[in-house]
Design a protein around this nucleic acid. Structure first.
Lengths: 168, 168
DNA sequence: TATTGTTATACTCTATAACTATA
DNA sequence: TATAGTTATAGAGTATAACAATA
């Protein structure tokens, strides 16, 4: 358990991290903003999937995912094939062009990192990666209970990423 | 020096970090979005300063800083006093109300972190902080040379944060 | 009725470029 | 002429809410 001052320092670094993000964003092709790249990356890593799963992985609302996907489909980088299990849904998958773009982006960003982090040891890079992964996990874990001290009754709802229905 | 796969993992964590950022943002008062909070935090930490310095610390264009500052001034959280050294400029400083808000925000975000990171040791929090600080430094360092292989003639310009003049 | 996904709308953050007022 | 700061405009990312099609 850390002290207040530790947390304040951490928060400042969170805030400053935006500069790194933007710097990385500047080297994306103008046609393929960060949101599109994230879609390609996740499809490349986890294989074909539906919108809802992609939304979970992106950790954004499905409406946002829908827009990103539309942008990427328009450019022919992914395609939507019918989902035999549910006709409301479609399966998203990389096209060859999408795979090629993904490979190129991956090479480019790795090259940039190897320039910027040239004096980092392999262990340091691994450490930062692990800590950021754990950070995200710590936030995910507690998202379920959230602000409420104790959830009155652990909701057994399936976790969904769509915009909540009107609770009237 | 790390391998390609290490960098790819790191990049994925960068991308996923957005979820943490948004989660933190959700607990800000509606009147005080993240940009405003950053202004208050930096003024609290480094004391009174001019726009240009604040821009550097925020690592955004001065036009962006100008808008954030205007928003915060409107709400009475900071004030602009004349700069005796340069009448084009003004000195930004927290008002008592701004200081009070800052204190409140700080307590609130630290409380949230202590909930989310309750099972992190003090050392782990410090480690993540240090690595993120170093990350930012690594990006800053190389921003000067940037994309160009070798700068034709190391520009001895003062570093400025304003929108570059038309280079015609 | 409930769920998957889409679209319309609105808000935040950001950068570029043009403008002002001082240096 | 150059710099400090402002403003207008545009683009990316996000969330909420209403909607269509299917379960």
């Amino acid at each position: 358990m850390a002290e207040q001052a530790r947390y304040e320092e951490l928060i400042r670094q969170f805030s400053a991290f935006g500069a790194v993000k933007r710097e990385m964003g500047r080297m994306m092709p103008s046609d393929c903003p960060a949101g599109s790249a994230a879609v390609l990356t996740l499809l490349g890593r986890y294989g074909d999937m539906r919108m809802s799963r992609l939304s979970e992985l992106l950790a954004v609302d499905m409406s946002v995912t829908s827009r990103h996907v539309a942008h990427v489909v328009e450019r022919g980088w992914i395609e939507r094939s019918p989902d035999p299990a549910d006709r409301r849904s479609r399966i998203l998958g990389l096209t060859p062009a999408g795979q090629a773009l993904l490979d190129q982006l991956s090479r480019r960003t790795c090259l940039m990192l190897s320039e910027r982090l040239g004096d980092w040891s392999d262990e340091e890079v691994a450490q930062l990666t692990a800590l950021m992964a754990r950070l995200r996990a710590s936030f995910d874990d507690t998202r379920a209970h959230g602000p409420e001290p104790r959830p009155p009754a652990p909701p057994v709802l399936e976790q969904t990423t769509r915009t909540p229905a009107i609770t009237t």
